[in-house]
């Protein structure tokens, strides 16, 4: 730990510096490749696997079984609807989840009864859900609307707060980067996209921007300029800010990811597929990617955007001249 705070000290003073802004080409290429893969691989795999909430269907769930044998469920469903291809999964270790295509009311009741008989439990213990195909589309449609409104609002807020819309642009690019990669990982892993996952994605919006704002606030402080004696170019000032907040970024992402990891663990290994796991997975990836993108995408991109400004170029030239003079 002592070494970690020393590391923080060194980063703070600039005694030790990780050249993040200077090597932006590398990071940009890495991110571009990651984004590309996140789009290509899921497409190559045949698109996302959508959950029952998007495709519509019937779902039955029984928990606390003595013999969570999946074949009983399959038999029970096919005994009622011979053509059905039920998807049976074990949840929570001793529970069973059965998903089928949408069944009629009578069929549904019969399947429920058959499942109850098969597992020898009272009918009331069999949880039954029916989801129309438009439900998931509805929630996603609303989510996309929310996304657009939020992006616009956040763009304006950041532009006003930081007094430059270029920070907004950089933050938005990083945000999209996060969303695409998170969605991509979802597609690559083959997890089902459920409304809970959509909630997770939406939270990443908030988190990704939140993280970026913290670092940008430091950048803004460091690049306020007006110090003629500074021999730091704009890019170097940005880099220093990123370095100075690096310990914060690491601590924050660790603290943010620990509870999420807790949910993911409980969700994946105890509860099985469900709301908690889906939210947690999206968040887990999102927080990691979000922290990365703030440091390696948003900050270098902002620097790139600003460096072309004449005023900034002038300052950079002056800083370099000052430095060369001292070296000679």
């Amino acid at each position: 730990m002592a070494s970690f705070s020393e590391f923080g000290n060194a980063l703070y003073t600039g005694a030790r510096s990780i050249n993040i802004v200077g090597r932006r080409r590398t990071w940009f290429i890495i991110s571009a490749v990651a984004v590309l893969l996140s789009i290509l691989i899921p497409v190559a795999r045949g698109g996302f696997v959508f959950g029952i909430e998007f495709t519509g269907g019937s779902e039955y769930q029984i928990s606390n079984l003595d013999n969570p044998d999946q074949s009983i469920a399959t038999d029970a469903v096919t005994s009622v609807v011979p053509t059905a291809v039920p998807k049976v999964t074990t949840v929570s270790g001793d529970g069973i989840r059965v998903q089928t295509d949408q069944l009629g009311d009578d069929e549904s009741t019969a399947v429920r009864q058959a499942l109850a008989d098969g597992y020898d439990v009272p009918v009331t213990d069999v949880t039954e859900s029916f989801i129309g195909p438009s439900w998931g589309a509805d929630i996603t449609g609303q989510a996309i609307r929310g996304l657009i409104i939020f992006l616009a609002a956040a763009f304006v807020f950041m532009a006003i707060y930081f007094r430059t819309w270029k920070m907004s642009i950089a933050a938005m690019v990083a945000l999209l980067h996060d969303l695409v990669i998170t969605a991509g990982v979802y597609g690559i892993v083959g997890f089902e996209v459920t409304p809970a996952a959509v909630i997770g994605f939406l939270t990443i919006l908030g988190y990704s921007l939140y993280d970026t704002v913290v670092v940008f606030d430091k950048i803004r402080e460091n690049t306020r300029g007006g110090d003629a004696s500074s021999a730091r170019t704009f890019a170097e000032s940005v880099n220093l800010a990123v370095n100075q907040t690096l310990v914060r970024s690491i601590n924050t992402s660790v603290v943010a990811i620990l509870p999420v990891a807790g949910i993911l663990f409980i969700g994946a290994f105890v509860l099985g597929a469900g709301t908690l796991r889906d939210i947690a997975l999206a968040l887990f990836i999102g927080i990691l990617v979000g922290t990365y993108s703030t440091i390696f995408v948003a900050a270098p991109l902002y620097s790139l955007l600003r460096e072309r400004e004449p005023a900034v170029q002038k300052e950079t030239k002056r800083a370099i001249e000052l430095r060369e003079k001292s070296l000679s």
């Binding site: 929630i139 609307r145 939020f150 956040a154 988190y207």
Partner: peptide, 16 residues
């Protein structure tokens, strides 16, 4: 920023 996200989600979104 976080609060903004919460408000937008709350107003626009449905259900869970």
């Amino acid at each position: 920023v976080n609060f903004l996200a919460a408000i937008v989600l709350f107003v626009v979104a449905i259900g869970n």
